[in-house]
Write a protein that binds this DNA or RNA. Structure first.
Lengths: 162, 162
DNA sequence: TATTGTTATACTCTATAACTATA
DNA sequence: TATAGTTATAGAGTATAACAATA
């Protein structure tokens, strides 16, 4: 395990972190301005809209959020706005089945064009078609790799500075 | 301006957002565990360490944070820990000159190896050397493009959903 | 008047732990 | 005993607006 990053890696890391940070900021702003949604709320609606079939909270938590209570909170906000509905599952009484409502679909539709504009203008206008394909391949590989990775809490801990 | 993203763009966008989200999460965890630092605090220390010459708050704000009060807050936390020092500038009496302390350098050194490990293991272990170079080039271009972009508040506003 | 920076404040997101209930 | 989900709560980060001081 090398104890440094080479110059190209450093450049890649910082450029990646900063550009995505700028993109996230713009996207969050757009979602909030155009639809009063947090990014997580947008992800939840998008995921529900994608699947068409209702999902459980556990299904939703996967990949969207890092704590269950966080998801409960965001789902509560969506439900209060009438954008999703929650009901007890008939199959497993412990589970909560989440469905997107008509209002939820409308909200998503209201937000999507602006969302696409932002991503297009900020990210893709700077990249060639070849770049985009390469980026998709790389980042898919990286995502799969990270997902497969055991959480770092399983790794030996360094001791706290000072 | 297209009103949709093509499938490759969609794949690239979501893979980018999710993988960087995973990376950010791991990195934040590592910085907190190993050095009690937020990512912004790490960026401030790294920037000060890089420049060696003291910077003003405005210098620091650029690229690190999106509001001045946020920077003041984070700098206050760093100063309370003795990792940076702030003093009135002699050149411009309005400006605050920020310097990294010995303790600040120590803290940064304590945190850096673990930081590099995380980035190496999570991101670069999934990518070839060619990929890394391509990523560096693409993301540098994207970052420059986004930085040059006028803030979206200058663009025509869509009206709020509902 | 514009700029630098801080303060006060409020809000959102997130996380931990305790809890209920079902399997 | 393990899993699904919620609640209560506390903490961290961020932003806005008002402000003081200097250019």
């Amino acid at each position: 395990m090398a104890d440094t990053l080479n110059p190209v890696q450093l450049r890649a890391y910082f450029a990646l972190m900063e550009s995505v940070s700028l993109l996230q900021y713009a996207v969050r702003q757009q979602l909030l301005d155009d639809g009063g949604l947090s990014y997580v709320q947008f992800e939840i609606l998008a995921k529900l809209s994608d699947n068409d079939r209702p999902l459980t909270m556990t299904d939703l938590a996967d990949g969207v959020v890092y704590s269950r209570s966080g998801l409960t909170h965001q789902a509560g906000l969506l439900e209060k706005q009438g954008l999703i509905s929650r009901a007890a599952s008939s199959e497993d009484q412990r589970a909560t089945v989440v469905e997107i409502t008509e209002r939820g679909r409308d909200r998503l539709a209201a937000v999507l064009p602006g969302h696409i504009d932002v991503v297009q203008e900020l990210l893709f206008d700077a990249l060639s078609a070849r770049d985009v394909r390469a980026l998709a391949d790389m980042m898919s590989a990286a995502r799969d790799h990270m997902r497969a990775r055991p959480p770092r809490s399983a790794a030996p801990r360094r001791h706290r500075a000072d």
